[in-house]
Amino acid sequence: MKKNNRIILLIFLVGILLSRFVDEENTFETTSKIQSGLFFKEANNVMLQDKIKNMVVKRIVMNENLSFNEAGFRLEEQTRKHLIDVMNWKSFDYVPKVEFRIGHTSKEIWLKYYVSEKYIRALEQKTNGDVYKDSCVEFFISLDDNHYYNFEFNCIGTKHVAYGTGRKERINVDPDILEKIRIRSSLGKHPFQERKGQHEWELLIAIPISCFVHSELKTFRKLKATANFYKCGDHTSLPHYLSWNTIHTGQPDFHQPDFFGSLYFE
């Protein structure tokens, strides 16, 4: 049924695009586009835009005197879970169960990840090290539709944060600034070699506004941004690359802001 709907929608979009070229002056241009395949690529791009996810990031009501654990309970009470379940690349078909919550308190972004997977690994202890090799969750966010921050955390809370316009144009955020990020892992803080078996773990994260050092942010309230949420484990026995919003590339690559979804902060 989904395939038939996709075909019907494609035919509809083709009709819309054809209507733009009905006069004789543009007939040759339209024919050339159809023959080259560009015409259908344009139609497919319109369809992909319809799949971009949207999310409202709720403002969490909490007292500043609450402990970190108590604040985490408030996050759970006032937000709902979202899935990170999109398998973008068929050659990496392992799909662990991954969910997350997100909220904000005007001055902090709160995240909580819930993961169930067959292999867990936590070797990286250095801030801005290769946490992606371990059991890892990630949050990429753009505030200007050009640059973006990548927040990456392995399952014991080691963090990696950078800023730039693409994969190669990254500037690591100063580790001293990143010390302000509060993290609690259900697995503790100590590194370990890969463990086999069905494992479940949770990661609670509070990212202060001061970590957005390349942006002139004073509050998260009413902020409009784009973002994606990920789960990976490059050097585990079952490498995987899951996302919240679909990524359309030939090879695994999370550094794709064109495929970020939309976030609206209350």
Rank of each mutant, 00 (worst) to 15 (best):
N26I: 05
N26F: 14
N26C: 10
T27Q: 13
F28H: 03
F28I: 07
E29F: 09
T30G: 05
T30F: 08
T31G: 06
S32Q: 14
K33H: 08
K33R: 15
K33L: 15
I34S: 03
Q35S: 11
Q35A: 14
Q35M: 13
S36V: 06
S36W: 05
G37T: 08
G37D: 07
G37M: 07
L38E: 15
L38S: 15
L38G: 09
F39D: 04
F39K: 02
F40S: 13
K41F: 08
K41A: 11
K41R: 14
E42I: 11
A43F: 05
N44S: 14
N44L: 15
N45A: 12
N45D: 13
N45V: 05
V46R: 10
V46N: 05
V46W: 12
V46S: 10
V46D: 04
V46Q: 11
M47I: 14
L48S: 06
L48H: 11
L48Y: 09
L48P: 02
Q49D: 09
Q49V: 05
Q49S: 09
Q49A: 08
Q49E: 10
Q49F: 03
D50Q: 13
D50V: 10
D50E: 12
K51W: 02
K51C: 02
N54T: 15
N54W: 12
M55T: 03
M55P: 00
M55H: 08
M55Q: 09
M55K: 06
V56N: 13
V57K: 00
V57C: 02
V57W: 01
K58R: 12
R59D: 07
I60G: 00
V61Y: 01
V61R: 00
V61A: 01
V61I: 03
M62Y: 02
N63T: 05
N63S: 10
E64S: 15
E64P: 12
E64A: 13
N65W: 09
N65Y: 13
N65M: 12
L66H: 10
L66M: 15
S67R: 02
S67E: 05
F68A: 10
F68Y: 14
F68N: 12
F68R: 12
F68M: 12
F68S: 12
F68K: 11
F68E: 11
N69H: 04
N69G: 03
E70Y: 06
A71L: 01
A71N: 02
G72C: 06
R74A: 02
L75I: 03
E77L: 05
E77G: 00
E77S: 08
E77R: 05
Q78F: 01
T79A: 00
T79W: 00
T79Y: 01
R80L: 10
R80Q: 11
R80C: 05
R80M: 10
R80S: 12
R80F: 08
K81Y: 11
K81M: 10
K81A: 07
K81L: 13
L83R: 14
I84T: 04
I84Q: 03
I84V: 15
I84G: 03
I84K: 03
I84F: 06
D85S: 15
D85H: 13
